[in-house]
Write a protein that binds this DNA or RNA. Structure first.
Lengths: 265, 265
DNA sequence: CGGGATATTGACTGTCATCAATTGCTGTGG
DNA sequence: CCACAGCAATTGATGACAGTCAATATCCCG
């Protein structure tokens, strides 16, 4: 296992450690989208006390690996990570990418063991949440329990949309739209993405060959939808991409008017 | 919306309503695998009080539909259901099948609205759990909260395995093994399955054409793995199927010895 | 017994994977 | 500072797996 210094060591991570040792959720940029989002000041304090430490990770460093015992969940503060498995045939399956404000590890609750590995794709910071303490705290603070369930629910929706039977075009468009929605949440739509993951990672996530990702990206570029230059993807026509991916968006499935009045019959 | 009688009406459901009105979790065959699994007698009583009623469903009857407000979760007591969506292109995507002892609806927590529809594939019974009351109760009973998280976690694992990049052969074999594992949990492996779902449903779940499901089933039969007769699938060689699906099994991903000693490095 | 839905089987097509070669980055050392 | 190694990404040629279209068979329900 790797050796994350207990507190504020001279890390190689790209991000500068603003506050050493204890995490301070109250001053964290991700607070609202993260677990303590709906907590008041006093509750936040209890929550902070539970967060053991922030783990700085350099690109390629693992947060946990297949087979590790499950003791902690993690909240991403900065950077980008992927969880993945290598199957019996040697194929890599990327289960999810994790962006700031998201939590990692719930799938390990049932088996009490990590069935996936999780690696940083860029310099990242992950807050370590002891699972036992987290559930105890959730038991004391209904708001925290509710937020946990909301975040789980959101993860399930995201996973479901990519799991469906869509064409390569639709999946890649959906991927770009999803990343755009996740890297900035409420602000104006981004005009470009700096993807932390390789084409291979994207391909493994979308169940495609890396060559296919390249080709579709080239096609999107020819159609004026994006400006792809390696990891930098300019978003020239986000609505156009969203149209291609419309079928994947759960909200699109209401089919227009049904959103207003609850469907009857 | 359909009209489930408030309590123990003269239902058309195949199962006989043993106890009318209030559900009695303590005498339910699914108790252990269901939410109140780890509760003591007194806690079970509180839980039962929360379960509003049991909804008997005939095949084809909906539990909820896309766009419905989210108020209840459901626990399957008997039968089989599917949750699905129809996308913008008119394609149906089956998100999950639900067997006795499983819970339905958590993906609707975040949007506070059902983004999927859920329909009974055979005569079924579903216990209706008001979500607000459930979370309140979970807040009072740590055991219930823990069980809820375990069940969610298990759902995520199941979804992840089918979501991966596998061949049609692997997915169908994995499907049969999964159903075999879920319809009977702890007892001896079943020698045959009576599938409640149609070929079309299976195909939509596995991202295949129904013709492909038929063809692969025929191939499995030729290879002596199964004896397929419409909805009745004889399992002649469950181990053989499990071998084909080995790559999908999360536990298989440990790669042998790693299961014993926690992986280091 | 008959009609409609469901399932099976066959022939052909298309999407995407595979194999292979080339280009373009990045970092390192002479 | 430039050359070169090594890797990632792109582009092209070919092939296979699974989808589509179509016809037939079988079951289920009234």
């Amino acid at each position: 296992m790797n050796d994350p210094k207990p507190a504020g060591g001279h890390s190689h991570a790209a991000t500068t450690p603003l506050d050493l040792g204890r995490s301070r959720c109250r001053s964290c940029l991700q607070r609202e989208r993260c677990l303590p989002g709906t907590l008041n000041a006093s509750q936040s304090q209890h929550f902070e006390a539970m967060v053991q430490r922030r783990r700085p990770l350099v690109a390629g460093e693992h947060l946990f690996r297949v087979g590790d015992g499950f003791r902690h969940m993690y909240a991403v503060q900065s950077g980008c990570l992927k969880t993945y498995t290598i199957d019996a045939e040697g194929r890599e399956h990327v289960m999810a990418f994790h962006f700031p404000g998201e939590i990692i590890g719930l799938d390990a609750v049932f088996p009490e063991r990590h069935l996936t590995s999780c690696v940083a794709l860029a310099g990242s910071q992950a807050c370590q949440l002891p699972f036992a303490a987290l559930t105890t705290l959730a038991h004391e603070m209904p708001e925290l329990q509710a937020q946990l369930l909301r975040m789980v629910s959101r993860d399930m929706l995201g996973a479901a949309s990519i799991a469906g039977d869509f064409t390569a075009n639709e999946r890649l468009a959906g991927f770009l739209v999803m990343v755009a929605a996740r890297v900035h949440r409420h602000e104006a739509p981004p005009t470009a993405l700096d993807l932390a993951m390789s084409r291979q990672d994207i391909a493994n996530y979308l169940r495609l060959a890396p060559e296919t990702v390249s080709r579709i990206l080239a096609r999107f570029q020819k159609d004026g939808l994006v400006k792809a230059d390696r990891k930098r993807i300019g978003l020239l026509n986000l609505n156009g991409l969203a149209d291609i991916a419309a079928c994947m968006n759960p909200y699109a499935r209401f089919g227009g008017q049904a959103l207003q009045r609850n469907a009857a019959s």
